[in-house]
Nucleic acid binder design. Structure first.
Lengths: 413, 413
DNA sequence: GGCGGTTTGTTGTACGGCTGAACTATTGCC
DNA sequence: GGCAATAGTTCAGCCGTACAACAAACCGCC
């Protein structure tokens, strides 16, 4: 008899009703979720490449353990709610009545990702099929900006997008607002966002988006969720390099958010107490070695240099640039070793500027992890570059909204 | 509109059936759990002091949202299964028919905690009422011991305890084996336990406990769960000082166990890369400052000195001892600051030898946490001593087994 | 090209479990 | 002793799933 991973998980989007009375309709809700999730996951290709052929009612019945009769009625409800679409039966190669392929509906229900960051703000809408149906990004300089003005502008953009989508017959399920700062996951308030110069405010009302449920989250954490669109383990640490260094802890495909969700502050892990003083008051924080500005400075580039000039220097084998990334990689490895040792999550995804710098960082990070992670002899740490592309938090936020739709389809039937 | 903590949690003891087909009997199972948990929690006094008077069927109905009719039949089942006991009606002060108080049954179903540690092995049995019904601890020296011999002896002790309990009419629900090493939570195998000199083995068969489900876990993690018996936040970091330094992450009253459960390795967070070399190969690990041996050495005591001689020196205001604890406290604070920053859990419980040393550690630990925890201006970190007493892992293991019984009472009706 | 074999999806009955309302049981208060 | 109040029980009704039989649509093969 062995220990099973008898574990619940604290991540985004717990199915509701875990600890409230179960009535007859609870069965319906739970089984609707089960069926919706089966079809959604098969289409998204949760593991491996997307199945060549979408599942039929019979497939869903086999996968869930429900009878075909029950699945049939549930699917009918989901189709009526426009969450699921029936495709024309494919030419069958087997004997028997051809199956009706079921896929998540396109352009019916969408989730919205919103973001304010230092140099841009944006709105992105995704549908259940995973397609981007709207994408608006405005460049800007929001360092020390006025929250009401910036969030008001973002709200206007979002309202325009919502208007457009609704006139196309789509329903907007909700929105996630990504901010580069400390967001209290319980209240949705922003405690502080150093790079915006914002503090102690409730951002949602400033958007003026009436009748649209908006949740707030940290930018790196939503960006982490965007990685779930691709092939990635169920649990990983996402580390996003930028002016600051943000992180998200993904466990079993959901965000780990204990207490107020203030985790992953890897930028201020002390790499060397004899190192340079950091803005946080401590000495030798990771940011002083692997923060964007520290790397540019060490590479002999101006602090406002674009990333591509650093990449150019690296590709040209510039010694200072190479040395800067070697130093950053060792420091990053050291801080990540603590991160892995403390959380027990062994895969690290490098996001933000680290994604593009990964070829020059990876070897050093891996080497230090191998030295310093205690479990590395039994579970080799894995380091990889993020793949979600530009403005990943917008994608992650929109995906998160849709995940909630799939997790509670009963609200839509 | 604000962000809710829309989070599932990965901790010990997920209610089963989260993602499988819901049939009619699923309702029964879920509601049985709900009722059992309501009665159990009220008795255990999950928050605050135990309610003066245990809940009645009507109270449970009000608390759960189920009707009195449903609660009545469910309670009848639980009473028949001897999981719940009806107390004689208390003298009613209100008008109306007096309520029948419901409490967890004493001495009917018990959970077993087992442990092998460096200097002892033990068996403890707890019943649903929270009482210890059996407690056997054998001192010994198990450094570099033979696993088969030691676990065989523990198995014999456990079998004797089981025999005794069963002859008294009790049913043993299961057992948890605590080991001071790296335990793979998925397979139950022990990868390595440095202080026992054990590695790569499956401990459960060596116990030779037929027909008793035994799960294996890390000792510090089970000790952390023992704290849940007292007044403690729902989430906290438990750090246990001993020869090594172990830790457990408790989130929403359950263990956080991502992947294989290898988290909380705080003993090898690097406090100062210029510090002394550690057995793990790195320099300046926390253990070199706050490990039991490092503290004793710094205090000028022999490495095998008992804890009470250190406590005596501290109470006598011995300079070397005080300085040793100051140094340990600063180092511990630094490593815990990383732990708090990375996990977002703001309460630290000091267990193992740290529990008794807490008066001399606390101020330094708190001071460093205040400096280094980024969220400390918004959520003051809390540091407290563990209260579970000797051999906490035995208590935690037994409690964990009982928590599973309460989480799935349907298996017992 | 019709017929058996095969797989899909639907229909109708049975059953389990919760609800709501009425009912019984037991007390305090006037 | 009667009335109000609270606890617990009984029973018809409803809801959602299972099970089994059935209809639909295809293949292959003689």
């Amino acid at each position: 008899m062995t220990a099973e991973p008898t574990t619940t998980q604290r991540t985004t989007g717990a199915p509701p009703g875990g600890s409230s009375a179960s009535r007859q309709h609870t069965l319906r809700e739970r089984n609707l979720r089960l069926v919706a999730k089966a079809i959604y996951d098969a289409a998204a290709g949760t593991s491996g490449p997307p199945d060549a052929v979408p599942p039929s009612r019979a497939d869903v019945a086999a996968a869930t353990g429900l009878t075909r009769a029950t699945v049939s009625t549930l699917v009918d409800h989901l189709v009526a709610a426009r969450l699921i679409t029936e495709l024309p039966p494919a030419a069958a190669q087997r004997a028997g009545r051809p199956a009706v392929p079921l896929v998540p509906a396109a352009r019916t229900v969408v989730g919205l990702g919103l973001e304010v960051n230092v140099d841009y703000l944006g709105v992105r809408a995704l549908d259940l099929a995973g397609q981007t149906v709207a994408d608006v990004v405005e460049q800007g300089a929001f360092h020390d900006s006025e929250p009401a003005t910036v969030l008001g502008r973002l709200g206007t953009l979002a309202a325009e997008v919502v208007e457009l989508l609704q006139s196309d017959g789509m329903r907007v399920a909700g929105a996630r607002l990504a901010l580069p700062g400390l967001v209290d996951v319980r209240t949705g308030e922003l405690e502080v966002a150093p790079n915006l110069g914002w503090s102690s405010l409730d951002p949602v009302p400033l958007l003026s988006l009436a009748s649209l449920p908006v949740h707030v989250a940290n930018e790196a954490k939503l960006a982490a969720l965007a990685e779930l669109a691709g092939e990635v383990p169920d649990s990983f640490l996402y580390v996003s390099g930028d002016v600051g260094i943000g992180a998200g802890i993904v466990v079993d495909r959901g965000l780990f958010l204990a207490e107020r969700g203030w985790n992953g502050e890897v930028g201020h892990v002390v790499v060397d107490p004899a190192g340079p003083r950091c803005s946080c008051g401590a000495h030798g924080c990771l940011e002083q070695y692997a923060g964007k500005e520290a790397v540019l400075r060490a590479a002999g580039l101006p602090l406002d240099a674009p990333l591509r000039s650093l990449l150019a220097a690296l590709e040209a084998d510039d010694d200072a640039a190479r040395a800067a990334l070697h130093r950053a990689g060792r420091a990053l490895g050291s801080a990540l070793a603590d991160f892995v040792n403390l959380t027990g999550v062994s895969t690290v995804v490098l996001g933000g500027v680290y994604a593009e710098l990964e070829p020059w960082l990876r070897d050093d990070v891996v080497a230090v992890l191998r030295e310093r992670v205690l479990a590395s002899p039994f579970a080799e740490p894995d380091v990889r570059a993020a793949r979600a592309g530009q403005h990943a938090a917008l994608t992650g936020g929109a995906r998160e909204v849709l995940r909630e739709v799939v997790a509670d389809p009963a609200a839509w039937v």
